[in-house]
Computed example of a mutant assay.
Amino acid sequence: MFKNVLSENIWGRVVSEKEPVFEEINKIVESNSKLISKLNNEYHDHDSTIKLLSEITGQKVDDSVGVNLPLYSDFGKHLSIGKSVFINSNVMFTDLGGITLEDHVLIGPRVNLLSVNHPTNPEQRRGLIVSPITIKKNAWIGAAATVLPGVTIGENAIVGANAVVTKDVPANTVVTGSPAKVVKTI
């Protein structure tokens, strides 16, 4: 599970752009962008990729994790990656709200995991609403799927390519479409 690195609780409320925590967030984003640039714009063998990913997340990433670069993250410090996870190329982790990838998860190419949203009220629009995403053990997120804030993908579940997941996916099911709906039990 990811650990909160911010001095303030940002979950369960609208975080205004005028709050001091926004400056803290922006500093982490700036620091992370340098590491992401280094990760994606230089050659890295497996060991150096894992080392950089550990630095980006602020947590030890297990050597059993496989990554096909490039990989993108806007925040980095609220991303937790289990053992034997595979992340394919061009994945985007918007992880300020927290993203947990449990053991044996497969993430397809061009997947978007988005734990951040904005208020519908135009006067608060630049604020943030964050809600964690959890991908349970042995789940598979297909190519170009998008998972929205607050969603849990159940153990062994499969999210089909190009699906847009707006609500929790039960364990041992296959979901497809936009919005994603259960099409099969496995």
Rank of each mutant, 00 (worst) to 15 (best):
L128S: 05
N4I: 02
S48L: 11
G66S: 14
V174L: 11
V29F: 03
G76S: 02
L52E: 07
K184P: 07
S33G: 03
N40V: 09
N172W: 06
K18I: 00
I107Y: 04
P109G: 06
V65Y: 01
K34F: 10
T185E: 15
P20V: 10
D47N: 15
I158N: 04
T100M: 01
P109E: 08
K18E: 15
V91Q: 06
S37H: 15
H118M: 12
V29Q: 10
F2W: 15
H104I: 00
V67L: 10
T166A: 01
S54L: 02
G97F: 01
G66L: 15
A161E: 08
I141A: 04
E155Q: 12
V5Q: 09
V151A: 01
I87C: 04
T146I: 12
S33Y: 10
H78V: 05
Y72E: 11
D168Q: 09
N90S: 12
D45W: 10
I10P: 01
H78T: 00
S48D: 11
V164D: 06
L128T: 03
D103T: 05
E42V: 00
T152N: 11
T146D: 02
V164E: 07
E24C: 06
E17N: 14
L114V: 14
A145F: 03
K77W: 02
G160V: 05
V65G: 09
N32T: 14
K38I: 07
L114F: 11
G177H: 07
T94M: 14
G127T: 10
T152A: 00
K137Y: 13
V130N: 03
N88S: 13
E155C: 07
N26Y: 13
S7C: 08
D168K: 05
S64D: 08
A139V: 01
S80H: 12
L79S: 08
L148A: 02
E17F: 14
T100D: 12
M1D: 10
I186L: 15
S31Y: 14
I50G: 09
Y43R: 14
N9A: 06
H104K: 14
I81W: 05
E42R: 13
I133N: 06
S73I: 02
L53C: 07
E42L: 15
Q124R: 13
E55H: 04
V174W: 02
T94L: 15
L148F: 10
I99S: 01
W140T: 12
W140Q: 13
N88Y: 07
A144G: 12
L39I: 08
I133K: 05
G98Q: 01
K18R: 15
N112M: 10
L52M: 10
L148N: 07
T120N: 13
A163Y: 07
L6P: 06
K136H: 10
